[in-house]
C-alpha cells in the first residue's frame, strides 16, 4: 500500500513541476502547448547526463537547463518574432519527438542508479514541488512582481503604459516555465521510470497542460488536481496493487487518466460551472503582443 501511495505522489510531482511552470507561462499570457516537448528534452538530456556522469543531481540540472533553452526558443518565436503561439509550441513539440528519437533511442534501457528516497519510498523532489507551488502561488497573488505578471497576461498594452516591460516579464516566465518542464521530464526519466524507452512521457505533458486549464490558473487547485491525477495515473499502470485481482486488461486501465481528463475538462467548461466558479483565464492568453 505505501509503495503505491509513494509512486502516486511521484507522478503528482511530475504533473506539479510541469504544471506550475506552464501556469506561470499562461499567467503572463504565453500559451505553451509544447510542454510535452520540453519534458522530452529534459528527460533525454537528464537521462544521458546521469548515465555518463553517474550523478543524478547533474542530470537534473542539465535536464532543467535544456528545458529552459527550449522555453527560451518558444519565447524567441512567440514574443520576439510574434509567431502564433500554438504554431511555435507545436513545432518545438514535434521537433522534440523527432530529435529525441534520433538522439536517445540507441540508449534505451535502465539507468541502474537508484534515486535517493525518503524511507526508501518517496523522492524528496515531491516536497520540493509542493513548496514550489506554494511559492509560485505566493508570488503571483501577494507580491509586486506577481501583480506585474498577471497584468501582462491580462492586458499587455495597459501594462506597458504603466511602465512594465512586457517583453522582459514574458521572457522570464517562459524561461522559468521551460526550466520546470525540463526538470519534470528529467525527474520522470531518472527517478520515476529509471529507464529510457521510446517517447517515455506517454502523454504526461498533455495531462499537465490539461491540469493547468482545470486549475483555472490557480496554484492550489493545480496541487489538488495533480494529486488526484497522480493516483489515477498510477492506478492505470498498476491496478492490482490497489485492488488485488483487478480484472481489466492493461490497455483499458491505461485509458483511465485520459478519459478522466476529458470528463474534467468538459465539466469545467459547461456554462453552469462557469457561472458558479468563473474562469480566471488570462485575457491576453495566446495573443502575441504587438506594439503599435
Amino acid at each position: 500500500m505505501w509503495p503505491f501511495i509513494a509512486r502516486c505522489l511521484e507522478v503528482a510531482t511530475i504533473f506539479l513541476l510541469a504544471g506550475i511552470g506552464e501556469l506561470l507561462d499562461q499567467r503572463s499570457g504565453v500559451l505553451n502547448v509544447g510542454i510535452e516537448g520540453l519534458m522530452l528534452f529534459g528527460a533525454a538530456s537528464g537521462f544521458i547526463t546521469a548515465l555518463r556522469t553517474g550523478s543524478l543531481l547533474v542530470g537534473f540540472i542539465v535536464g532543467a537547463a535544456l528545458g529552459a533553452v527550449f522555453g527560451f526558443l518558444h519565447g524567441l518565436f512567440s514574443i520576439t518574432l510574434k509567431v502564433d503561439q500554438v504554431v511555435s509550441a507545436m513545432g518545438i513539440w514535434i521537433f522534440a519527438m523527432g530529435f529525441v528519437t534520433f538522439w536517445m533511442d540507441k540508449y534505451s534501457g535502465p539507468l541502474r542508479i537508484p534515486s535517493p528516497r525518503i524511507g526508501g519510498l518517496l523522492s524528496p523532489m515531491f516536497f520540493f514541488a509542493v513548496v514550489l507551488v506554494l511559492v509560485v502561488w505566493f508570488i503571483l497573488s501577494k507580491t509586486h512582481i506577481g501583480l506585474k505578471i498577471r497584468s501582462v497576461g491580462e492586458d499587455p498594452s495597459v501594462a506597458e503604459a504603466t511602465g512594465i516591460n512586457v517583453v522582459k516579464i514574458r521572457y522570464l516566465c517562459v524561461i522559468i516555465g521551460g526550466l520546470l518542464g525540463g526538470l519534470a521530464g528529467a525527474f520522470m526519466c531518472i527517478t520515476y521510470l529509471g529507464l529510457w524507452s521510446h517517447i517515455p512521457t506517454q502523454g504526461m505533458g498533455w495531462i499537465a497542460l490539461a491540469l493547468v486549464l482545470f486549475s483555472m490558473w490557480r496554484p492550489p487547485i493545480l496541487l489538488a488536481g495533480a494529486l488526484i491525477f497522480g493516483v489515477i495515473w498510477q492506478f492505470g499502470i498498476a491496478p492490482e496493487t490497489l485492488i488485488p485481482g483487478f480484472g481489466l486488461p492493461l490497455g483499458v486501465c491505461r485509458m483511465f487518466p485520459f478519459i478522466a481528463t476529458i470528463i474534467v475538462l468538459a465539466v469545467i467548461s459547461t456554462p453552469r460551472f462557469r457561472r458558479k466558479w468563473g474562469l480566471a483565464k488570462p485575457a491576453a492568453l495566446g495573443q502575441p503582443y504587438i506594439k503599435e
Binding site: 502523454g203 498533455w206 490497455g251 483499458v252 485509458m255 478519459i259 481528463t261 475538462l265
Partner: peptide, 16 residues
C-alpha cells in the same frame, strides 16, 4: 488537449 487525450485512448484501445 482533447484530441491528444483521444489519441492516447485510441492507442490503448488497440493495445487492449
Amino acid at each position: 488537449v482533447i484530441t491528444l487525450m483521444l489519441n492516447n485512448i485510441a492507442f490503448w484501445l488497440l493495445h487492449a
